[in-house]
Design a protein around this nucleic acid. Sequence first.
DNA 1: GGAACCTTGACACGTCTCTGGTAAGGTTGG
DNA 2: CCAACCTTACCAGAGACGTGTCAAGGTTCC
Lengths: 125, 125
Amino acid sequence: MATDALTIHESAETTGWSPRMLRYIERSGLVVPARSASGYRLYGAAELQRLRTLRELLERFELGLSDVAFAQRLGEDAELRGAVEEWLEAEPARPEHVAAGDWLGWEQDKHQKLLAAAATPPANV
Amino acid sequence: MATDALTIHESAETTGWSPRMLRYIERSGLVVPARSASGYRLYGAAELQRLRTLRELLERFELGLSDVAFAQRLGEDAELRGAVEEWLEAEPARPEHVAAGDWLGWEQDKHQKLLAAAATPPANV
DNA sequence: GGAACCTTGACACGTCTCTGGTAAGGTTGG
DNA sequence: CCAACCTTACCAGAGACGTGTCAAGGTTCC
Protein backbone atom coordinates (compact mmCIF):
# COMPACT_ATOMS: atom_id res chain seq x y z
CA MET A 1 0.00 0.00 0.00
CA ALA A 2 2.40 2.58 1.16
CA THR A 3 4.39 3.69 -1.80
CA ASP A 4 7.25 5.65 -0.36
CA ALA A 5 6.02 6.22 3.14
CA LEU A 6 8.37 5.17 5.88
CA THR A 7 7.53 3.92 9.31
CA ILE A 8 8.65 5.76 12.36
CA HIS A 9 11.82 3.77 12.86
CA GLU A 10 12.86 4.05 9.28
CA SER A 11 12.14 7.74 9.34
CA ALA A 12 14.14 8.08 12.50
CA GLU A 13 17.16 6.55 10.86
CA THR A 14 17.02 8.70 7.78
CA THR A 15 16.36 11.94 9.59
CA GLY A 16 18.56 11.64 12.62
CA TRP A 17 15.74 12.04 15.06
CA SER A 18 14.79 9.31 17.45
CA PRO A 19 11.38 7.65 17.18
CA ARG A 20 10.57 9.19 20.50
CA MET A 21 11.33 12.63 19.18
CA LEU A 22 9.34 12.08 16.04
CA ARG A 23 6.31 11.48 18.22
CA TYR A 24 7.16 14.52 20.27
CA ILE A 25 7.54 16.65 17.19
CA GLU A 26 4.22 15.44 15.95
CA ARG A 27 2.64 16.31 19.25
CA SER A 28 4.07 19.78 19.03
CA GLY A 29 2.38 20.13 15.68
CA LEU A 30 5.47 20.74 13.60
CA VAL A 31 5.58 17.60 11.51
CA VAL A 32 2.44 15.54 11.55
CA PRO A 33 2.70 12.37 9.50
CA ALA A 34 -0.17 10.58 7.86
CA ARG A 35 -1.51 7.46 9.47
CA SER A 36 -2.14 4.02 8.09
CA ALA A 37 -5.53 2.46 8.51
CA SER A 38 -4.36 0.83 11.69
CA GLY A 39 -2.79 3.96 13.08
CA TYR A 40 0.83 3.56 12.07
CA ARG A 41 2.64 6.78 11.33
CA LEU A 42 3.59 7.15 7.69
CA TYR A 43 6.26 9.65 6.82
CA GLY A 44 6.34 10.70 3.19
CA ALA A 45 9.17 12.37 1.36
CA ALA A 46 7.87 15.81 2.31
CA GLU A 47 7.80 15.00 5.99
CA LEU A 48 11.24 13.49 5.87
CA GLN A 49 12.66 16.53 4.23
CA ARG A 50 10.89 18.71 6.69
CA LEU A 51 12.34 16.77 9.56
CA ARG A 52 15.85 17.10 8.22
CA THR A 53 15.57 20.81 7.62
CA LEU A 54 13.99 21.23 11.01
CA ARG A 55 17.07 19.67 12.52
CA GLU A 56 19.29 22.07 10.65
CA LEU A 57 17.14 25.00 11.57
CA LEU A 58 17.27 24.24 15.25
CA GLU A 59 20.99 23.69 15.31
CA ARG A 60 21.90 26.60 13.12
CA PHE A 61 20.05 29.16 15.18
CA GLU A 62 20.03 27.36 18.49
CA LEU A 63 16.27 27.25 18.59
CA GLY A 64 13.96 24.99 20.49
CA LEU A 65 11.04 23.11 19.08
CA SER A 66 8.82 25.40 21.08
CA ASP A 67 10.28 28.38 19.28
CA VAL A 68 9.42 27.02 15.89
CA ALA A 69 6.06 25.92 17.18
CA PHE A 70 5.41 29.44 18.34
CA ALA A 71 6.46 30.81 14.98
CA GLN A 72 4.00 28.45 13.38
CA ARG A 73 1.33 29.62 15.73
CA LEU A 74 2.14 33.17 14.75
CA GLY A 75 1.69 32.27 11.14
CA GLU A 76 -1.66 30.66 11.75
CA ASP A 77 -3.20 32.93 14.30
CA ALA A 78 -3.66 36.35 12.78
CA GLU A 79 -4.97 37.83 15.98
CA LEU A 80 -1.97 36.68 17.91
CA ARG A 81 0.38 37.85 15.22
CA GLY A 82 -1.25 41.25 15.19
CA ALA A 83 -1.03 41.63 18.92
CA VAL A 84 2.59 40.59 19.11
CA GLU A 85 3.48 42.74 16.16
CA GLU A 86 1.80 45.70 17.70
CA TRP A 87 3.60 45.24 20.94
CA LEU A 88 6.96 44.91 19.26
CA GLU A 89 6.41 47.89 17.04
CA ALA A 90 6.22 50.15 20.02
CA GLU A 91 9.94 50.00 20.17
CA PRO A 92 10.97 52.14 23.11
CA ALA A 93 14.65 52.92 22.95
CA ARG A 94 16.34 50.22 21.00
CA PRO A 95 17.47 51.98 17.88
CA GLU A 96 18.71 49.31 15.58
CA HIS A 97 18.22 49.22 11.90
CA VAL A 98 14.89 47.55 12.28
CA ALA A 99 12.13 48.22 9.87
CA ALA A 100 9.13 48.36 12.09
CA GLY A 101 6.06 46.96 10.48
CA ASP A 102 7.74 44.81 7.95
CA TRP A 103 9.35 42.05 9.88
CA LEU A 104 6.54 39.61 10.43
CA GLY A 105 5.47 39.99 6.88
CA TRP A 106 5.61 36.31 6.15
CA GLU A 107 2.73 34.50 4.68
CA GLN A 108 4.13 36.12 1.61
CA ASP A 109 1.38 37.51 -0.61
CA LYS A 110 3.12 40.68 -1.79
CA HIS A 111 5.46 43.28 -0.49
CA GLN A 112 3.02 46.04 -0.08
CA LYS A 113 3.90 47.64 3.16
CA LEU A 114 2.04 50.85 2.93
CA LEU A 115 2.48 51.82 6.48
CA ALA A 116 6.14 51.03 6.74
CA ALA A 117 7.22 53.87 4.53
CA ALA A 118 4.75 56.39 5.82
CA ALA A 119 5.33 56.45 9.53
CA THR A 120 8.81 57.53 10.40
CA PRO A 121 10.17 56.35 13.73
CA PRO A 122 10.33 59.17 16.24
CA ALA A 123 13.52 60.90 17.14
CA ASN A 124 14.74 58.49 19.71
CA VAL A 125 15.53 59.78 23.15
CA MET B 1 13.70 63.06 31.34
CA ALA B 2 14.57 62.67 34.93
CA THR B 3 11.19 64.11 35.59
CA ASP B 4 8.90 61.21 34.96
CA ALA B 5 11.30 58.31 35.22
CA LEU B 6 10.42 55.84 37.93
CA THR B 7 12.71 53.61 39.88
CA ILE B 8 12.31 49.88 39.75
CA HIS B 9 10.12 49.63 42.82
CA GLU B 10 7.84 52.40 41.72
CA SER B 11 7.59 50.88 38.30
CA ALA B 12 6.82 47.54 39.83
CA GLU B 13 3.90 48.99 41.69
CA THR B 14 2.41 50.74 38.72
CA THR B 15 2.84 47.87 36.29
CA GLY B 16 1.99 44.90 38.41
CA TRP B 17 5.30 43.19 37.87
CA SER B 18 7.66 42.54 40.73
CA PRO B 19 11.03 44.26 40.81
CA ARG B 20 12.54 40.87 40.34
CA MET B 21 10.56 40.32 37.18
CA LEU B 22 11.41 43.73 35.83
CA ARG B 23 15.06 42.77 36.00
CA TYR B 24 14.27 39.45 34.42
CA ILE B 25 12.32 41.11 31.63
CA GLU B 26 15.19 43.43 31.04
CA ARG B 27 17.57 40.50 30.86
CA SER B 28 15.34 38.87 28.29
CA GLY B 29 15.63 42.00 26.22
CA LEU B 30 11.96 42.87 26.10
CA VAL B 31 11.89 46.06 28.12
CA VAL B 32 15.24 47.64 28.75
CA PRO B 33 15.06 50.77 30.86
CA ALA B 34 17.50 53.63 30.77
CA ARG B 35 20.06 53.89 33.51
CA SER B 36 21.01 56.74 35.75
CA ALA B 37 24.61 57.82 36.00
CA SER B 38 25.09 55.48 38.91
CA GLY B 39 23.36 52.53 37.29
CA TYR B 40 19.85 52.83 38.64
CA ARG B 41 17.14 51.65 36.29
CA LEU B 42 14.90 54.45 35.07
CA TYR B 43 11.56 53.51 33.62
CA GLY B 44 9.95 56.18 31.48
CA ALA B 45 6.33 56.40 30.43
CA ALA B 46 7.01 54.36 27.31
CA GLU B 47 8.56 51.53 29.26
CA LEU B 48 5.78 51.53 31.79
CA GLN B 49 3.17 51.30 29.10
CA ARG B 50 5.13 48.58 27.41
CA LEU B 51 5.29 46.62 30.62
CA ARG B 52 1.57 46.86 31.13
CA THR B 53 0.72 45.80 27.62
CA LEU B 54 3.24 43.02 27.85
CA ARG B 55 1.36 41.70 30.83
CA GLU B 56 -1.88 41.76 28.88
CA LEU B 57 -0.30 40.14 25.88
CA LEU B 58 1.06 37.26 27.87
CA GLU B 59 -2.15 36.61 29.69
CA ARG B 60 -4.43 37.01 26.73
CA PHE B 61 -2.63 34.48 24.58
CA GLU B 62 -1.03 32.43 27.28
CA LEU B 63 2.43 33.24 26.07
CA GLY B 64 5.72 33.16 27.88
CA LEU B 65 8.30 35.85 27.94
CA SER B 66 10.47 33.58 25.87
CA ASP B 67 7.82 33.50 23.18
CA VAL B 68 7.73 37.25 22.86
CA ALA B 69 11.49 37.36 23.07
CA PHE B 70 11.66 34.94 20.21
CA ALA B 71 9.23 37.01 18.20
CA GLN B 72 11.43 39.99 18.82
CA ARG B 73 14.42 38.04 17.71
CA LEU B 74 12.53 37.14 14.56
CA GLY B 75 11.94 40.79 13.94
CA GLU B 76 15.57 41.70 14.37
CA ASP B 77 17.33 38.81 12.72
CA ALA B 78 16.40 38.74 9.08
CA GLU B 79 18.37 35.61 8.43
CA LEU B 80 16.60 33.76 11.18
CA ARG B 81 13.27 35.05 10.06
CA GLY B 82 13.94 33.95 6.53
CA ALA B 83 14.98 30.51 7.58
CA VAL B 84 12.00 29.98 9.83
CA GLU B 85 9.67 31.41 7.27
CA GLU B 86 11.04 29.14 4.63
CA TRP B 87 10.65 26.12 6.80
CA LEU B 88 7.09 26.99 7.70
CA GLU B 89 6.09 27.68 4.15
CA ALA B 90 7.07 24.22 3.05
CA GLU B 91 3.85 22.31 3.01
CA PRO B 92 3.59 20.52 6.31
CA ALA B 93 0.79 18.00 6.10
CA ARG B 94 -1.21 19.41 3.29
CA PRO B 95 -2.33 16.12 1.85
CA GLU B 96 -3.28 16.24 -1.73
CA HIS B 97 -1.68 12.96 -2.52
CA VAL B 98 -1.54 11.78 1.03
CA ALA B 99 -5.23 11.16 0.82
CA ALA B 100 -4.43 7.83 -0.71
CA GLY B 101 -4.00 5.91 2.51
CA ASP B 102 -6.87 7.47 4.26
CA TRP B 103 -6.99 7.15 7.95
CA LEU B 104 -9.55 8.30 10.38
CA GLY B 105 -7.23 9.72 12.95
CA TRP B 106 -6.92 13.14 11.36
CA GLU B 107 -8.55 15.12 14.07
CA GLN B 108 -7.28 18.44 15.29
CA ASP B 109 -6.34 21.53 13.31
CA LYS B 110 -9.44 23.23 14.51
CA HIS B 111 -8.52 26.86 14.75
CA GLN B 112 -6.66 26.59 11.53
CA LYS B 113 -9.96 26.49 9.73
CA LEU B 114 -11.54 29.14 11.85
CA LEU B 115 -8.75 31.57 11.28
CA ALA B 116 -8.43 30.71 7.66
CA ALA B 117 -11.95 31.84 7.13
CA ALA B 118 -11.49 34.83 9.35
CA ALA B 119 -8.63 36.88 8.13
CA THR B 120 -5.97 35.10 6.15
CA PRO B 121 -7.40 33.81 2.93
CA PRO B 122 -4.18 33.07 1.01
CA ALA B 123 -1.52 30.79 2.37
CA ASN B 124 -1.42 28.22 -0.30
CA VAL B 125 1.40 26.46 -2.08
C1' DG C 1 1.51 -18.53 15.37
C1' DG C 2 5.34 -15.95 16.52
C1' DA C 3 8.92 -12.44 15.66
C1' DA C 4 9.22 -7.84 14.76
C1' DC C 5 7.18 -4.14 14.15
C1' DC C 6 3.73 -0.31 15.69
C1' DT C 7 0.67 2.31 19.28
C1' DT C 8 -0.25 5.02 23.63
C1' DG C 9 0.96 5.88 28.38
C1' DA C 10 3.89 6.53 32.22
C1' DC C 11 8.28 7.22 35.03
C1' DA C 12 12.62 9.75 35.01
C1' DC C 13 16.19 13.06 34.57
C1' DG C 14 18.66 17.30 33.12
C1' DT C 15 17.94 21.83 31.64
C1' DC C 16 15.41 26.00 31.07
C1' DT C 17 11.64 29.38 32.42
C1' DC C 18 9.55 32.05 35.89
C1' DT C 19 9.39 33.66 40.49
C1' DG C 20 10.73 34.52 44.95
C1' DG C 21 14.22 35.14 48.19
C1' DT C 22 18.82 36.62 50.53
C1' DA C 23 23.51 38.56 50.76
C1' DA C 24 27.17 42.00 49.94
C1' DG C 25 27.91 46.35 48.46
C1' DG C 26 27.17 51.26 46.06
C1' DT C 27 23.88 55.82 46.01
C1' DT C 28 20.94 59.21 47.65
C1' DG C 29 19.15 62.52 50.48
C1' DG C 30 17.80 64.44 54.94
C1' DC D 1 26.07 59.67 59.01
C1' DC D 2 22.47 56.71 58.36
C1' DA D 3 18.18 54.89 56.57
C1' DA D 4 16.31 53.63 52.49
C1' DC D 5 16.88 53.00 48.31
C1' DC D 6 19.52 50.76 44.31
C1' DT D 7 22.87 47.17 42.13
C1' DT D 8 24.62 42.35 40.96
C1' DA D 9 24.94 37.46 42.15
C1' DC D 10 23.59 33.36 43.92
C1' DC D 11 20.09 29.57 45.99
C1' DA D 12 15.52 27.55 45.32
C1' DG D 13 11.43 25.57 43.76
C1' DA D 14 7.40 24.60 40.64
C1' DG D 15 6.50 23.73 35.92
C1' DA D 16 7.67 23.11 31.10
C1' DC D 17 10.92 21.33 27.48
C1' DG D 18 13.79 17.60 25.42
C1' DT D 19 14.95 12.89 25.69
C1' DG D 20 15.27 8.07 26.99
C1' DT D 21 13.25 3.86 28.52
C1' DC D 22 9.93 0.50 29.75
C1' DA D 23 5.17 -1.63 29.81
C1' DA D 24 0.87 -3.42 27.85
C1' DG D 25 -1.28 -4.17 23.92
C1' DG D 26 -2.52 -4.14 18.52
C1' DT D 27 -0.52 -5.24 13.40
C1' DT D 28 2.09 -7.27 9.87
C1' DC D 29 3.98 -10.74 7.59
C1' DC D 30 6.49 -14.92 6.88
